[in-house]
Design a protein around this nucleic acid. Structure first.
Length: 805
RNA sequence: GCCUGUGUGGUGAAAUUGGUAUACACGAAGCACUCAAAAUGCUUUGACUUGUUCGUGUCGGUUCGAGUCCGACCACAGGCACCA
């Protein structure tokens, strides 16, 4: 048992006093930027899940430093957001104070774990020096016509009288009080993210994201190629529909339009059953998005009486319906309904007794729709009931029908994206104030850049208002101001930015965190170049990553960052679950507090265990016995020092093993295979322990290789036995290519693919020699005697397989 | 429903990418030390019908050889979900 408490404190102090991990631009060294998602400093302190990813990236950072890279490994705080606000309301303290306290706790915990962050670059998104630049960047969005105000539906809890984020309204009920959430129209700031859909797709080629991460981005953007077609209304007027299945256009038996769209409002004067229609529109608005998606068993809707639309390919007049399965903000808010070949249209037609016309062969449309997923797979599918297009394949029909409609000038090929513009307003106190002013005369005006930051007022009232406005609206000193343009009386925007804002560019700020003249200098960004490794939770690989990429691409387009993609590799870690295999939570009583573990077993043991626990990208259940095993491993490392001697004569076996271990650990750390890196070190230890004596050189190598994972004990032992320079300041061990293999190796002898014996052979043995030895094994003879030898397969240094009949 | 993963001992998991399945660790059992326990060390530990045996979710295929490749299916986990 070694005194980890003393040792760990000693080295933490040393690193801190000597600013061991602070970095500057150094053009003689290759930069390497390792980033972990900066945490939201909650009241409950650091989670053992944080420890996993921070240790993993810390190990990489420490190794890369020893390999001579100029490693940037920063840490900061993502401290705006609703949880901090609610925590503050509950405990009657200002969010600012709550955040300060929590950051102190988090930082202390991180330091007690020995993470090699460059603390000189620390900042919080809530620092005015930081959010000044978040606001400044918002103004750039505005000035480049990328930010606009629009009235959009938001989640509204009628009981709390509060606007909720989608996350807070999950399941269609308010997270706080459990009431049913409804949709309410509110005027919100929006960022034109949809304009970047194509760029965000293309940009993926310039990244090294894992395929599943790329797919997540692609799915979120949700590109659909299709055709927009103009549809005439009987008696004048027209509208457009969007379809990806133009080949089914002869199968139209009705149209469906969105109840929340513009079209129905335009048609209203001509509708005969206004009352019924208005009632349906109102009912829909009361349903949240959740209701609309979850109650999809039936297909509700109502016909617009008195209005018929004309199918452009055959002149057929068909009815128009309202249906809430059609969304007002996607495509054109209107669809052609082809019940024979679309499941939703099919259900709708059944529900409302509408005609079903089959236009593609191969399905059985009596029972269900023959959908595109099926007919596109069917090579024999042909068009029917489609006039001159009858008999064509799907591909031919797609092209020819599109061509015909384009010729007529009533259709165009378009792409649609599921990704919408980014709703950028929150009716919350604890966020970056949006630096805009509304003047009766001049309209919305941006704040002068030199007046930034626009500070959050230092007040006692920050609780939500009754009418769903931001708490800032209640503070006259904040609201009332002068117009930046005409200097007349004006009012400030009282909404704040979403939590995602500050985290969309923080990785740029880390490159140059104290800059007062810009959010980060071009020089600094050009030197550090990009984030080489970005680690975070799986839950952020879709949205946060997309927002951050959008933000960077915009800054790139206006010339403020050096490249279009500033994040190279994205990796995500698995969760640490409770010992019962469930997610850790207070209510389940399975929470492990890292502080307790550090106290009882030491930081090195916790770090080693979390690296050894399993595949880094997979979830893993906590096991205190597993942790004890790792502690035991460190104790044995410590005790191995008793066997040191100065002699240098060791066997080839050990020499080879050491070189193999150097190779294995180096590669594993580079590939996020921490569990096998630790196991390789355990194997090396087991072998060294079995020796009478261990050379100082080998011991130092073992300590060096373990240092990125368990930095305190290894540094201490290196010093205790006076083995050389401090490990973290020494070059990472390299292996000798000529000593990766033993002089002899074991050859497996198989007969018909089954292991029947083993041979120890010299590396120099040729095939004939090996064959002779193999055929002479007693157990092999037993299996081949009296049989015809068909062939013999020899895989060098691995296997010899004798095939007999 | 769609997309993405994952299925290997009592448990967490390895397997050089088609070449000895179960490395490393935990747990368990036995032994040593001890008055005793803890700690530590050593030994054993896939299964059974104990053998030219079976065994990586199931069934089939390719191959001299399959955890790994191909086809079909089952189960679990995560993400998206009326996106026309």
């Amino acid at each position: 048992m070694y005194n980890f408490k003393e040792i760990e404190k000693k080295w933490q102090k040393y690193w801190s006093d000597n600013k061991s991990f602070e970095v500057d631009i150094d053009k003689n060294k290759t930069p390497y930027y390792i980033l972990v998602e900066f945490p939201y400093p909650s009241g409950s302190g650091l989670h053992v899940g944080h420890v996993r990813s921070y240790t993993a990236q810390d190990a990489l950072a420490r190794m890369k430093r020893m390999q001579g890279y100029n490693v940037l490994y920063p840490m900061g705080w993502d401290a705006f957001g609703a949880p901090a606000e609610q925590y503050a309301i509950k405990n009657h303290i200002h969010p600012k104070d709550a955040v300060r306290e929590n950051i102190k706790t988090f930082k202390g915990q991180m330091q007690s774990l020995g993470f090699s962050f460059d603390w000189s670059r620390e900042f919080s998104t809530t620092d005015p020096e930081y959010y000044k630049w978040t606001q400044w960047q918002f103004l750039q969005f505005y000035k480049h016509n990328m930010a606009y105000k629009a009235t959009v539906p938001v989640n509204w809890c009628p009981s709390c009288k509060s606007v909720l984020s989608n996350e807070d309204a999950a399941g269609g009920v308010c997270e706080r009080c459990g009431s049913t959430v409804i949709q309410k129209e509110k005027s919100q700031w929006m960022l034109k993210m949809s304009e970047y859909a194509e760029d965000l797709l293309n940009g993926l080629d310039d990244t090294n994201f894992a395929e599943k991460v790329k797919l997540g981005q692609i799915n979120w953007i949700g590109k659909s190629k299709g055709v927009e077609v103009d549809i005439d209304i009987v008696g004048g007027g027209k509208f457009s529909i969007f379809t990806t299945c133009i080949e089914t256009i002869y199968g139209i038996t009705f149209f469906v339009i969105a109840p929340d769209g513009k079209l129905v409002k335009e048609l209203m004067p001509r509708i005969e059953n206004k009352e019924e229609v208005n009632k349906y529109i109102e009912e829909t608005s009361k349903k949240s998005n959740m209701d609309r998606t979850e109650l999809n068993k039936g297909k509700s809707g109502v016909e617009l009486k008195g209005i018929k639309a004309i199918n452009p390919v055959n002149g057929k007049e068909v009815p128009i319906f309202l249906g809430d399965f059609v969304l007002g903000d996607y495509g054109t808010g209107a669809v052609m309904a082809v019940p024979a070949h679309d499941e939703r249209d099919f259900e709708y037609a059944k529900e409302h007794n509408l005609e079903i016309i089959e236009v593609i062969t191969g399905g059985d449309i009596k029972t269900k729709a023959y959908e595109k997923y099926d007919y596109l797979e069917n090579k024999d599918a042909r068009l029917i009931n489609s006039d001159k297009f009858n008999g064509l394949t799907i591909q031919e029909a797609k092209e020819k029908i599109t061509h015909m409609l384009k010729e007529k000038g009533i259709a165009r090929e378009v792409n649609n994206y599921k990704m919408r513009d980014w709703i950028f307003s929150r009716q919350r106190f604890w966020g970056e104030p949006i630096p805009m002013v509304y003047c009766e005369k001049c309209g919305w005006q941006p704040l002068d850049e030199k007046d930034l930051p626009l500070l959050l007022p230092d007040v006692a009232e920050y609780e939500p208002t009754d009418n769903g406005e931001s708490p800032l609206a209640k503070i006259p000193e904040f609201v009332n101001t002068t117009c930046p343009k005409c200097k007349g009386l004006a009012k400030r925007e009282t909404d704040t930015m979403p939590n995602w804002a500050g985290s969309s560019w923080y990785f740029l700020r880390f490159m140059d965190p104290h800059n007062d003249n810009s959010f980060a200098s071009m020089d600094a960004m050009k030197y550090w170049k990009r984030v080489d490794w970005y680690n975070g939770g799986m839950e952020h690989t879709a949205r946060h990553l997309l927002y951050a990429r959008f933000w960077v691409q915009f800054l790139y387009n206006i010339g403020l960052v050096p490249s279009k993609e500033m994040i190279w590799t994205r990796v995500s870690h698995g969760m640490i679950l409770g010992s019962n295999g469930e997610k850790m939570s207070k209510s389940k009583g399975n929470v492990i507090n890292p502080d307790d573990i550090v106290k009882e077993f030491g930081a090195d043991a916790l770090r080693t265990y979390e690296m050894f626990i399993g595949d880094y990208e997979k979830d893993a259940a906590w096991s205190t016995n597993g942790l004890k095993g790792c502690k035991k491993f460190l104790d044995r490392i410590y005790n191995l020092g008793n066997k040191l001697n100065d002699s240098n004569d060791y066997t080839k076996d050990i020499l080879v093993l050491i070189n193999q271990t150097i190779k294995k650990v180096t590669e594993d750390l580079n590939n996020m295979k921490y569990n096998t890196a630790v196991s390789a070190l355990m194997i090396l230890l087991n072998n060294l322990e079995s020796l009478e004596q261990v050379s100082r050189k080998d011991y130092r190598t073992l300590l060096h290789l373990l240092n990125p994972i368990a930095p305190h004990i290894t540094e201490e032992l290196n010093e205790k036995y006076n083995l050389g320079n401090k490990l973290f300041e020494s070059s990472w061990p390299t292996y000798d290519k000529n000593n990766l293999e033993n002089d002899t190796f074991t050859m497996v002898v198989q007969v018909n693919g089954k292991v029947r014996g083993k041979l120890d052979t010299k590396v120099t043995a040729d095939e004939e020699e090996i064959k002779k030895l193999a055929f002479n094994l007693d157990n092999v003879k037993l299996f081949i005697d009296g049989k015809e030898i068909v062939k013999v397969i020899i895989i060098p240094k691995k296997i010899i397989n004798i095939v007999v009949k």
